[in-house]
């Protein structure tokens, strides 16, 4: 199963990044996995922190932390935005 990423805004750098998994995992587990993977990549340290308050969405809806990712899919990464 392949999960590909499409980041918006401050998470734009994640576009095109993808990961292969052999077993299904929840959004919560995927977030933790992604943070671990990015933390060893140079230049991604700020994104690792931001990721903890990002939401993940498929192309239709924002996913809850318990949603099971069990097929090839694109995940949109929606960063926190708090200005006006």
């Amino acid at each position: 199963m392949k999960i590909s990423l499409h980041g918006f805004g401050s998470m734009r750098a994640l576009r095109g990044i993808g990961f292969e998994f052999v077993a299904p995992l929840t959004v919560r587990e995927f977030r933790a996995y992604l943070q671990t993977q990015l933390s060893i990549k140079p230049g991604f340290s700020e994104l690792v922190i931001l990721l903890s308050s990002c939401a993940f969405a498929n192309n239709e809806q924002v996913l809850t932390e318990d949603t099971l990712l069990n097929k090839d899919q694109l995940l949109n990464v929606l960063p926190p935005v708090c200005g006006g």
């Binding site: 308050s53 932390e65 926190p80």
Partner: peptide, 18 residues
């Protein structure tokens, strides 16, 4: 329901611009 965790300071205009 959707914005579960508090955004970091970088998520404000004064820090990151607009």
């Amino acid at each position: 329901c959707w914005q579960i965790k508090a955004p970091q300071a970088t998520a404000s205009c004064s820090v990151s611009g607009v």
